[in-house]
Design a protein around this nucleic acid. Structure first.
Lengths: 144, 144
DNA sequence: GGCTGTTATTTGTAAATGCAAATAATTGGC
DNA sequence: GCCAATTATTTGCATTTACAAATAACAGCC
């Protein structure tokens, strides 16, 4: 293996960590966290998801998610309901307060997208996204 | 903001998390961790780095790194030395055992690079790396 | 040479994380 | 309809993590 900064997982993690750290710092004054935002964003896209599905799309471990949702629930941002037709499953729903918080975070998220992609042409940005989706799919190969 | 999976920080994190989880699982039987590997890889590239620089290149928080290095040191993988010319600073050095472990991990790391980039042409792979470096540089803009 | 402010690392502490085990409920045979 | 195997979520527990404060040593200025 050559220099570290030609190693893809390294580049990926390094960029991801930098965005995550900066974004987390922005969340703090709002009393939110990056992970909570992920959950809210996922629910904004489709409300009433199950814990398992939510874990999958947010890339948060289910047991971690359980406790994160505990907190968010006690803060009144989301509510758990029993899934209709399957009493094992739980569906998660954003509350009005949750949706309000989502609206406050959205412009910040949009700014991050812009800053991250500053200097990229539309074509380059799209190519990067396509590549990241592909890479994600590739990694499914050696999953547990 | 549109669908989640057109949001760049999301794509980045999701891909990164998947690689990290899978790679961590591979490290376990070796008695290593992903973070320890990052340190070893950074030392392989240049031994005798300082803690601060190491934190920077590995994207591990310095206080986290201190304790990670404590562990690695007690496992005999690395050794701290006082930096010559500056008694505040510490330089970190891989031991023979550390280098042996590095050699065992290298082929795994190389496999991950291959799997992640499966189906990418050399040109596409390089474009992705360039984009990730650029993105990383862009994010320096709104750092603490 | 002795302050003053800065830099490098560590430590205190509370919260987040992840694996494994536990719990609860479904499904598919039979 | 009952049992075994599977699926969805939660809990137990030990580790990792990050922010902030503490410590230690340097650098420049007078």
């Amino acid at each position: 293996m050559g220099p570290l900064d030609s190693y893809l997982p390294y580049l990926l993690n390094r960029a991801g960590a930098r965005i995550a750290t900066a974004f987390s710092a922005e969340m703090r004054p709002l009393g939110a966290t990056l992970q909570a935002w992920r959950v809210l964003a996922a629910l904004r896209e489709r409300d009433g998801r199950r814990m398992g599905g939510l874990a999958e799309t947010t890339a948060i471990e289910v047991s971690t998610l359980t406790r994160l949702v505990d907190n968010m629930e006690s803060e009144g941002l989301v509510a758990r309901r029993r899934a209709p037709g399957d009493a094992r499953a739980v569906t998660l729903h954003a509350t009005a307060a949750g949706r309000r918080l989502t609206q406050r975070i959205l412009p910040i998220a949009e700014r991050y997208e812009r800053v991250a992609l500053a200097g990229f042409s539309a074509k380059e940005a799209e190519a990067l996204k396509v590549a990241l989706r592909r890479l994600y799919a590739n990694m499914a190969a050696l999953r547990p």
